[in-house]
Every structure is written in structure tokens, then in C-alpha cells.
């Protein structure tokens, strides 16, 4: 068995009286890809936001590489350099150029040398085929280009795990493929550990080692990717796959 990266134990979250997440348990090992599936409002985004401290949780525990996270904002802030995250909103910082967006956190937060970071940023941009846009402002880019750069921006921090929260949901259809391609590439070539919230079922089937199926904040299925798509165990999961034309 490879090294454990992330473990969640009995995580519960309440908004006032309403329980958004019920007793979530999951374990993720190095190099594994976990996809969170489920209908909208099932708590997928809330869960993935809990995993890098953007949301607090009410009870339970999260362990990073076997060490329990104490939940203080300082701990989270340090940890977020190791937990990369990309959002649905593909928001780059509008006041910075592409290269400045990528270099900001490695230079200012991690205090790495500007020269080294720049070189790495450019090679990452080459990898996503956007190296001609180094000094361009985000306003001039398409949504898909912005999202690819947002992924590069997160990778430049050398994270040990990447979280993707519906990163293709607000993109135009023709932009989706390029972004998914990069994520697939990360999984296959870099063996990046990843958690992905997505509605792209074909993509999920290809990439997922493990699937968590959520509804109303509860895990209904926790199984391998193959198993989930071939033999869903619950009616709810079957209905869900049917509704997604699967």
C-alpha cells in the first residue's frame, strides 16, 4: 500500500439546524484519483471546500499524511501550499498578468527565488500550450485558457494533492476538453493525487480510481470507479447515472 495522503473521519457539518454533511469518511492514498459525484446540492462542493479549510466543519477530523489537522487558520494557511485547489469560477487576479498570477504565491508565500519560479512557470505554461500569453492580462483570455492557467497557478506551489471543484461547469462546451485533458495528464503522467467534483461522467469513468456518491450530504456509495459505473449498488446512484445519460 502506498502512503496515505488524506483521511476524513466522521465529518459533520451544520448550517444552523440544517445538516449539510453527515458522517463523511474517506481515505486517499498517494497517486489516487477520487471523484465526488452526486446531484447538485448533495454537498460535494461543501465537502471539497472543507478539505482545504475554506469551510469549517462541526465535528469529525481530517488527517493530512497521518497528522490530524487542528483547524486553526494558521495550520490551514500553511497546509494550503500542499493542497492545491481550482474552482468553478476560473478567477485569475484581474490586476496581474498571467505570469504574475502564477508567480505571486510561490514568490511571496513560499519565498522561493523569482528566477527559479519564473522558469518553472514558463515550462508549466508550455505544457498547457499557453506560453505565448505570459505577459497578457486575464481579461484577454477565454474561460478555458483562464482555467488552464488557474491549474498551472496551483501546480506552481508543488502541491501534494489537487482539489478540483467543478472546474469545467461554467466553461463553454468547446473549452471543456482542453481542461479535462490537462487533468487526465496530471493523473497519468505525474501520478498526482486528486479529488475531483465533476458532472462530466465520461471523464469521471476514465479517471476515477475511487468514487464517492453523495446525496443530501450522505455518502451512499464508496467504491472503485470501475465498480460504480458498471454496477451501481443503490437505486439513487442508478437514477443519477440514468439522469446523466449514462
Amino acid at each position: 500500500m502506498t502512503e496515505e495522503i488524506l483521511r476524513v473521519e466522521n465529518l459533520n457539518k451544520y448550517y444552523g439546524d440544517w445538516q449539510a454533511l453527515h458522517d463523511i469518511n474517506l481515505t486517499l492514498h498517494k497517486g489516487e484519483v477520487l471523484t465526488l459525484l452526486g446531484p447538485s446540492g448533495s454537498g460535494k462542493s461543501t465537502l471539497i471546500r472543507c478539505l482545504n479549510g475554506l469551510e469549517t466543519f462541526s465535528s469529525g477530523a481530517i488527517y493530512f499524511k497521518g497528522k490530524k489537522i487542528d483547524g486553526s487558520s494558521k495550520t490551514w494557511q500553511a497546509l494550503r501550499q500542499k493542497i492545491g485547489m481550482v474552482f468553478q469560477s476560473y478567477d485569475l487576479f484581474p490586476n496581474l498578468t498571467v505570469i504574475e498570477n502564477i508567480m505571486l504565491a510561490p514568490v511571496k508565500v513560499q519565498k522561493r527565488s523569482e528566477k527559479e519560479v519564473r522558469a518553472e512557470a514558463i515550462s508549466l505554461l508550455k505544457r498547457v500550450e499557453l506560453d505565448e500569453y505570459v505577459d497578457i492580462y486575464p481579461r484577454e483570455l477565454s474561460g478555458g485558457q483562464k482555467q488552464r492557467i488557474a491549474i498551472v497557478r496551483a501546480l506552481a506551489l508543488h502541491p501534494e494533492i489537487m482539489l478540483f471543484d467543478e472546474v469545467t461547469a461554467s466553461l463553454d462546451p468547446e473549452m471543456v476538453r482542453g481542461v479535462l485533458q490537462i487533468m487526465a495528464d496530471l493523473a497519468k503522467k505525474d501520478h498526482m493525487t486528486m479529488i475531483i467534483v465533476t458532472h462530466e461522467m465520461n471523464f469521471a469513468r476514465q479517471i476515477a480510481d475511487q468514487v464517492l456518491f453523495l446525496e443530501d450530504g450522505k455518502i451512499l456509495e464508496n467504491t472503485s470507479g470501475k465498480e460504480f459505473f458498471a454496477h451501481p449498488q443503490t437505486d439513487r446512484a442508478r437514477d443519477f447515472l440514468t439522469s446523466m445519460d449514462f
Partner: peptide, 27 residues
């Protein structure tokens, strides 16, 4: 300044001061 910009900064590991200096104040 939009909440998603602040999420972005946090997700990149910025502390409160860095968030203010590099995200909130310039925008």
C-alpha cells in the same frame, strides 16, 4: 472584491496580511 478572489488567494496559501496586500487592496 469578490469572494471567489479571496478563495483563490486562500487556496494559494496566503495568510491574512498577504491576502490583503496582494488581493484585496490592489483590487
Amino acid at each position: 472584491v469578490s469572494p471567489s478572489q479571496i478563495d483563490d488567494g486562500k487556496a494559494l496559501g496566503m495568510n491574512d496580511l498577504q491576502l490583503a496586500r496582494y488581493v484585496v487592496f490592489p483590487q
